[in-house]
Design a protein around this nucleic acid. Sequence first.
RNA 1: GCAGCAGUAGCUCAGUUGGUUAGAGCACUAGUUUGUGGAACUAGGGGUCGGUGGUUCGAAUCCACCCUGCUGUACCA
Length: 445
Amino acid sequence: MKKEKKRNKPSKEIPLGFVDRKEKELLVRDFIISNIKEIMIKYGFQYLETPSFEYSDSIGKFLPDKDRPDEGVFSFKDENKWLSLRYDLTAPLARYVAKNYLEIPKPFKRYQLGTVWRNEKPGPGRFREFLQFDADFVGTKSSLADAELCVMISEILTKCGLNKSDFVIKISSRKITEELFKKLNIKDNQQKLTALRALDKIDRLGWDSVKELLGEGRKDKSGDFTEGANLSSNNIEIIEKELKKKTPETEDLIEIIKIFKDYNFRNFEFDSSIIRGLEYYTGIIFEVNLKFDVKNNKGQVIQFGSIGGGGRYDNLINNFGNYDAPATGISIGLDRLVYALMQKKDFKIKQSKPVVICVFDNNSMKEYINLQLLLREAEISAEIYPGEGKLKKQMEYANKINSPAVILYGEDEIKSGKPTLRNLSTGKEKSAEIRELVNEIKKII
RNA sequence: GCAGCAGUAGCUCAGUUGGUUAGAGCACUAGUUUGUGGAACUAGGGGUCGGUGGUUCGAAUCCACCCUGCUGUACCA
């Protein structure tokens, strides 16, 4: 009987890849968001919000012969159409631009903050639900736009408390690999993609492993085998040699570096091993990398990788029809930035906690409420102890929520009109006239 | 998806070659203190030992399958 009952209890577990986020983290996130908004206004971007769900085909999820478009997205069927939770903010932007093409200004600059969902295996610091920040230029081919994005994200990170030496923007261009493929006469699209994905892993795996992936394939340390791009060893040598060059040769990179100079912006590096997985990039690509150590909850230093990146995608919006909409944009993973920022030693956000007014006798509630009103009118966070119980329990509560002080206003104090104020960090008590109370508390906070 | 490892209290874990009623620390509740938190002491609650089936006189322990998690790898439009 009892066992039966237990079995029917609802699960207290949360789904794989989803997390509860607590106040400490949320405050840092709010701080970052307020900085972002401020700077986006300064740079002249429009604020936009699009829905969490889109029709699956609108965001690039076509469902040829599948029952369910579940490749990486969460979907369900509504009446006859498939809907998917958005997996990024770029696809909805493309859809928005196509839908509103005639009304929007051209070029169109918009920024967006929003949760995105990915139906993928979560990893350390990677979840199935996370907050992204995106800023994009639509309808301009100018490298000034690409440059602005880099300068802007740098300003945001600085405003959030990072030093120039804490991060770097790495830039490259898809034109480099494109020209290489042309030169080597590699035409098969699938082969190109496999090669790009392999090159994207240089950071993590190193050149030796990447060369295996460009060739026949690679066995990882768990014994799993990954099929390679099957390029000839001659071609692989040429690719390695070409990508190890330290100076950019493509036109777009030369141009953006010149613009950086005009901005007096130096916090960037050319790195031809920056590839980025997405297929749709066509030109300049960049990544925002942190240079300080990030640790996991066991205190081990983990390879954190980039907190975001972006690049130029001149053909994406054309998928919706014939729009002249070359575009470039940046995405930042806010939760990852929050995680990293919380580890900076000098980074703390204080949240004022309420002064707790203890309850001795429910018949004196009017007195407590008056005190509470007085404090709140003075913009002091205050609350009457919200439960029932002895004074000890009330003190324990105040201690647990990090309250700076409690006010004791029992029979004797009410009679004399002088509440007792107890400082919870020193443990000292003081008797104060009601009109002095606000000042005494301000001394403590 | 593939591979390796692991699942014992809310959390971190111990549990000997299979052997009584499964333990510890932290956390929680109550008390020592009927008006005083962070320390101490005392007592207490809390477990289908991931699940199912099997081997056995006897299973947290051995076997099979399943589920879940972690790590690596792939995918990440």
